[in-house]
Nucleic acid binder design. Structure first.
Lengths: 357, 357
DNA sequence: TATCAATACGGAAACGTTTGCGTTAAAAAT
DNA sequence: ATTTTTAACGCAAACGTTTCCGTATTGATA
């Protein structure tokens, strides 16, 4: 087991000082041609690679970004991570992930863990429990320690930072208007409780679309599900809720669902109840998942472009990290600084498949 | 922006030395009761947290494990990561992920990047390109640098390390035997090229099951797909290949597929061709994904238990990391050491759903 | 009263880098 | 021949910790 080679070892072997080795490897003109070549050759021979940890300590930056998400076994989040990873790698950064598992305390713990030097900045999506408690102190404390944050998807006004969101509102409007245009008169909505901002926004989009299309929004057509109880596990509960929605609205001819599971389950229930899709009933889901593509009929969706979200978030964060560098020497007016937080909106796109006409 | 507080600052404020502060915070009896309390109180007041990077440099361990996988937008891999993350967090470790994107060079780059001090050990699954090239030098070099590796799922004999695999062979035997027991006489196999070890093992399991059941293995019933061309994108190619399989085997009454996509696509094609599932044709897939649960009919699967794999891998790695600690003082016989590499097998389980009788 | 042990703390090295500054010797300029 | 410049390198500090070792003060023992 050959241990990692350090500057000191090279210096000792070649009978020069550590600083000479360091400079030689940086190809500094301060070191004589001969010594420089000799050191470089020897270093290459030993396969020397500088120790990242020592560099981090010295430079006070880790070239690592922390990603904090509620759940990783979830198509949307994993596409976001992929996006983050791609640009992070391109720009020389590593990615360290933490899962909050939708829990407030795990979110806080994970942040504290990583904030103590392990990472230069965060990209995160807020856990449901945190949204419910509306306790955002850990975000603000992190920021005030000089660690920038970029939030995506589940964001919140109370925290001042860059944000990347999808146009939940507009996307939903588009989707519901499409259903209207396709002839739907009684469009059901399957959504989550309002404390999840994306659920709320999508619900508002649904209402706005109906309003603009001058279609009466029947309260009975709206099904609000509490996502807290793990519906993934209790599919039957979900199914019976949806079945109830159909039964109390016999004339229903369109469904807009705010996520993939709701949408495909709606199709499943509808088929069981004898609806023909898309002839009797058209369905659109807000998602980007794999279920919709392989469902039968395949599901028309409002695509969220998770990977783009991740890429944009990573670019925003790294831009800010590297901007902070420059700012330290160019002594910039304290006021003109931190103000410029962007909220970047990733456009949604309707991908038409078999569940709509 | 209040910067991070260090021992030095506390020391200066309280007019003691850095070493005293350090000891006081460790609650060392060497420091007088009074000073100790005073320092601890002040540190708590300032919300002092030790700098991880400095600790890493000093202790020569990062408490971070590197996870290298081919792809993250993949249900199996994300469940494995979840498993890793759970036990890593429990045991005080962080997880840093790298994606090889099935590419050899990205795998090598990522390893080198992380091996220079960023992590204490690796958990990884080999990329397809690496398996094809059969070039494993980067793994062996990493190990010989004293950085332990745990491989999961896609493993290889040429590298000596702990491994966590699923019993691909036995699982496949079980699945195919189940089809036989259910009355299938002509069981198709949809699999990948042999260089992916899991594909090969599952193919062997299929053959063995037929052999033991004294069913003739018709070569025509085996469809080997080259996974290199991104089939996810070209669903139509996949579909036509499968359709061809059905058409040249009109008497086919069972299908065993080595992954989820193949299985659900087979069902889709079969339905299109007029097969009733499970009456005319029974299907079993080797997977753990979300498609199978929501397909219609829902798919009977051989479950891989990705999360368990991740948990076991993390435990193995951390065990070895912390074992290495002790070994350094107890000067153990060089020979008796590294030998004890485990290959841990996670049992598969057949989850019966609607695609089988 | 002189010696000793214990108590309570400070100094400094070490982990592996980078970098400002100082030093030496030779070459160039006066 | 003396001074100045320049090339080529070494020393040491710094990043934030921990820990070994040293030391001053106190109280107890001989």
């Amino acid at each position: 087991m050959k241990k990692k080679v350090t500057l000191k070892q090279i210096a000792r072997e070649l009978d020069v000082s550590v600083s000479t080795v360091s400079r030689a490897l940086a190809d500094s003109k301060e070191i004589g041609e001969n010594t420089r070549r000799r050191i470089q050759a020897f270093a290459k021979f030993l396969n020397y690679k500088p120790n990242n940890i020592a560099l981090s300590l010295k430079n006070k930056k880790t070239k690592t970004i922390g990603v904090l998400i509620p759940e990783i076994v979830h198509h949307f989040f994993s596409t976001v991570i992929r996006g983050i990873e791609i640009v992070a790698n391109e720009r020389g950064y590593n990615v360290i992930v933490g899962l909050s598992n939708e829990s407030f305390s795990k979110e806080v713990l994970n942040m504290e863990m990583l904030a103590n030097g392990s990472i230069d900045g965060f990209i995160l999506s807020i856990s449901k429990e945190t949204l419910l408690k509306q306790d955002y102190h850990h975000f603000n404390e992190t920021i005030s320690q000089g660690i920038p944050i970029v939030m995506f998807d589940r964001v919140v006004n109370e925290v001042e930072c860059d944000k990347v969101i999808v146009d939940d509102f507009k996307g939903s409007v588009k989707a519901v208007k499409k259903l209207v245009d396709n002839g739907c008169k009684h469009i059901g909505l399957i959504t989550t409780m309002d404390y999840v901002s994306v659920g709320r926004l999508r619900t508002q989009g649904y209402l706005r679309a109906l309003e603009e299309s001058q279609v009466y929004a029947e309260p009975n057509l709206i099904l609000k599900l509490d996502d807290m109880v793990s519906l993934e596990e209790n599919l039957d509960i979900l199914e019976s809720e949806i079945e109830h929605l159909f039964k109390r609205n016999p004339k229903i001819d369109g469904v807009f669902a705010v996520n993939e599971l709701y949408a495909v389950t709606a199709m499943k229930v509808a088929k069981k109840l004898g609806y023909a899709i898309p002839d009797d009933l058209q369905v659109i889901g807000f998602t980007d998942g794999v279920l919709s593509k392989h469902a039968s009929p395949s599901l028309t969706i409002v695509s969220q472009h998770g990977q783009k979200i991740g890429e944009k978030a990573a670019d925003l964060l790294i831009d800010r990290l590297e901007m902070d560098d420059d700012e330290s020497d160019a002594n910039i007016n304290e006021n003109t600084r931190e103000e410029a937080f962007e909220t970047y909106v990733i456009e949604t796109e309707i991908i038409e498949r078999e569940s709509t006409k």
